[in-house]
Nucleic acid binder design. Sequence first.
DNA 1: TTCAAATATTGGAATACTCAAATATGTATC
DNA 2: GATACATATTTGAGTATTCCAATATTTGAA
Lengths: 125, 125
Amino acid sequence: MNSNSAEHTDRGIEDAPDGDCCTASHSLTDEALLDDVAMLSAVGNETRYETLRYVAGAGQAGACVCELPPLVGVTQGTVSNALSRLLEAGLVSRRKEGRWRYYTATTEARTLLLALDTIQEGSDE
Amino acid sequence: MNSNSAEHTDRGIEDAPDGDCCTASHSLTDEALLDDVAMLSAVGNETRYETLRYVAGAGQAGACVCELPPLVGVTQGTVSNALSRLLEAGLVSRRKEGRWRYYTATTEARTLLLALDTIQEGSDE
DNA sequence: TTCAAATATTGGAATACTCAAATATGTATC
DNA sequence: GATACATATTTGAGTATTCCAATATTTGAA
């Protein structure tokens, strides 16, 4: 019932970039696509995004888990889970120091957050 | 039960950037934070991310809805819902033309996708 | 070893999300 | 008008998320 897509390649758009008229495409491998989605969905949650922002705000020194629960406003267990998920997505790295663990934002995370800052800037000018 | 965060400001990290030792912070307003999360969670889904990639791949001409279902591999209704959600998140804009509708990626979306490309590049060198 | 602090993991109830199917709303052509 | 096509919206069943509470683990100090 959904084979009607080749039917109107003759539409009135002439400024198509180069190549076929209206066949959209993208150049991501399936793996890259899934990686991106995993990363984006990891940050696409208020608790995790705010946690990541705090971690990134702590710079190279990193943020220790214990200071985050009151800042983010969730339980210690929730923060720990959030950090684990961010770690798995490659957005933070972990460093042991005594009985504490310091989480630091990765380059990937910084790139992403910078892009988001850029977007926010553009939205009010 | 969770007031134990001020208790170890005397930890052994001396390379703190500037200012207080271990108090993490971030400078986002609550509104900006929610905006970002809305945007990120909109793209943090395989169907919507792939849809956005196809739309962005179609350039300024935009992609019409009818060509997307077979490309993304979901129903027409699902694509339509995906586009609505992307529209609400400010990632695509819509243009009517006859009985078709063309969706175009916004500047915000392009900035985000570019950042993701940068991140992917960095991951294999 | 015993204790306490820091962090991780698990269980589970409430909630939210996903997507196809069905239906509704436009829009051009006849 | 009527008809057919393009798109949007609604519905609902299945599934996944979210976050707290409770428990487990790890670690340093006594």
